[in-house]
């Protein structure tokens, strides 16, 4: 079967799952762990923050993930410049947990849209420092190509602003980005439901990164499973090759012997 050899390769790692799952906003650690299991995700994203020194019982999320072989993808959220993103990336790598980094640089707090210029700068620096860099960027084919040329291991254009659930605002661009790319394209941010995920996968992207649509669903565990199945369905549909759209009907049984007289 085609899917058995259909693995995703990023930064020297082979992934059986095309689902990158964020770990924020879940109602509690139990639901989060169940959702992670239901998602089948192998790559989990995190943020880096100051420890609350007044209450260190408010512990790291990692305590709930022991003994599991996930790939950790810390992000640089909170960074407003390339320098800040590089600083956060170095802190993340010093954890010893991962040398993967999701470059995420936003200035506008209302849209949280990525700053593509700072993102490119940070990507250039971090690639030179040996990180496996996955930049989150705008759905612009030119900047996506530039990030690939800078050495990004995968490029992650947004479907829509973070947490909006608006779905793919510009499917034409996402399709074009995939056509032009020589590295995996992961749609990151803005998806809302399983139908958005199928659309992304049918456009040929290599995977999707989601957090809010799973964590804030009424039933996050069930939604995690729905998203997993949508990724699989969309991927199979893409690989299978859909029919071309036609303006008029064409009968499934032919028309030649249609008249019984």
């Amino acid at each position: 079967m085609q899917t058995e050899t259909d693995v995703l390769r990023i930064g020297g790692r082979c992934l059986a799952s095309r689902f990158f799952l964020g770990t924020g906003l879940f109602p509690n650690p139990y639901v989060q762990m169940e959702a992670i299991k239901a998602s089948g995700a192998e790559v989990l994203t995190f943020a880096i923050r100051r420890i609350n020194l007044e209450n260190t019982e408010d512990d790291s999320i990692l305590q709930h993930l022991h003994n599991e072989s996930y790939i950790y993808l810390p992000n640089t959220s909170g960074a407003r410049t390339a320098d800040e993103a590089v600083r956060i990336a170095r802190l993340a790598r010093a954890s010893g947990l991962s040398d993967w980094i999701k470059v995420e640089i936003s200035v506008n707090e209302r849209t949280l849209l990525p700053d593509p210029i700072e993102t490119l700068r940070a990507t250039e620096v971090l690639v030179k420092e040996g990180f496996t860099v996955l930049p989150y960027t705008s759905d612009d084919p030119v900047i996506c190509k530039r990030l690939e040329e800078a050495g990004a291991a995968a490029v992650m254009p947004g479907a829509a602003p973070i947490g909006t659930g608006l779905g793919i605002l510009n499917p034409y661009h996402i399709g074009l980005i995939v056509e032009e790319a020589n590295v995996p394209i992961i749609v990151d941010a803005g998806l809302g439901s399983a139908s958005d995920v199928v659309q992304a996968m049918e456009l040929g992207v290599s995977g999707v990164l989601m957090n809010t649509p799973v964590a804030k669903a009424t039933d996050p565990v069930r939604m995690a499973k729905a998203m997993r199945l949508a990724i699989e369905a969309g991927r199979l549909s893409y690989l299978a090759g859909r029919i071309t759209k036609k303006k008029y009907a064409s009968a499934s049984s032919g028309l030649d012997a249609f008249q019984l007289k």
Binding site: T23, A47, L62, P74, S95, M210
Partner: peptide, 10 residues
């Protein structure tokens, strides 16, 4: 000095 850790994020 900055003391940081991993927290939930997307």
């Amino acid at each position: 000095i900055e003391l940081v850790h991993f927290v939930g994020g997307g």
